[in-house]
Design a protein around this nucleic acid. Structure first.
Lengths: 146, 146
DNA sequence: GTAATTCGTGGGTGCAGACCAATCATTGGT
DNA sequence: ACCAATGATTGGTCTGCACCCACGAATTAC
């Protein structure tokens, strides 16, 4: 039996985004799971690497993640000492979170994982096509309310 | 505070796919939820519209959905009489599922919903860019194992 | 004709994501 | 000095999704 997807659906970019995005997410998540991590762990490390130390509430705002979930992610990132939590002296309610050297190394490994996943996923596309795809997605991404 | 996403992540097409795909999925799902439906309902209707009647096992194979879940989706699609289940006379274990006229109309409405969601999501892209995006995603989609 | 297999069905489990309510320490306004 | 608001934390809930097991009816293999 023919196992192609319905053209009615593949004509919808929404559907393709949903479907391809889901497998992208799934494969990356699987890869991270091999290290006992989830996607948010990588996102948090990346945010700290790119923008420097954050108060937890700012991390939550930037990543559009619930504040209470930030706590749990940070708890797990603190175990291997990838992040450091220091109480902000100017406002002792806040906790400044920063990336450690070990965290930076770990992030680099996760990026390598992600690139492997990506190379396999985008195999049918040429280098320039991949670049176009990234550009288009980036433009769409930038105007997302989240 | 700056609320942009980390470049380390946005440089990864995998991430963008995952993120944009998730909101695409979410928005479409919300829209369908307004009609009491989920994504699989639309997928099943589309498969029947595009490829004609299926035995349930073939629907499951085509859409890469678990057989036991097909049953539940069909149960719900049968309530408003959008699908018809007829026992296959040549193999009375099989049940041939076909789309009714009402089902075809319903699917058209769902497609309209999807296009609205899509227009808002892809707003920053020109018509030709949207077409390029669809082409690229389609190529990626076609080689997915599922 | 009996055994093994297939198809649909029902009920139930497990997981991950997002969210919520309550609590405690700290701060800023007045 | 007091009160309202904020930040972090804990320990839950709720939802959707995918999957699994066991069963009955029907078919195919031997």
């Amino acid at each position: 039996m023919d196992e192609t997807a319905p053209p009615t659906l593949t004509a919808l970019t929404t559907y393709l985004l949903s479907r391809v995005g889901k497998t992208a997410r799934g494969r990356l998540a699987d890869r991270l799971a091999g290290r006992g991590l989830r996607l948010w762990h990588m996102a948090v490390l990346a945010a700290l690497a790119d923008f420097g130390p954050h108060a937890q509430r700012d991390l939550a705002a930037r990543l559009a993640i619930h504040a209470s979930d930030v706590v749990k992610v940070l708890d797990e990132l603190a175990v291997p000492n990838w992040v450091e939590r220091v109480r902000d002296p100017t406002d002792r309610r806040r906790i400044q979170v920063s990336l450690t050297a070990a965290g930076r190394i770990a992030l680099a490994e996760l990026e390598a994982d992600a690139r492997e996943v990506q190379d396999r996923l985008l195999e049918p596309l040429s280098a320039s096509e991949r670049s176009v795809l990234n550009q288009l997605l980036l433009r769409v991404h930038e105007q997302l309310p989240d």
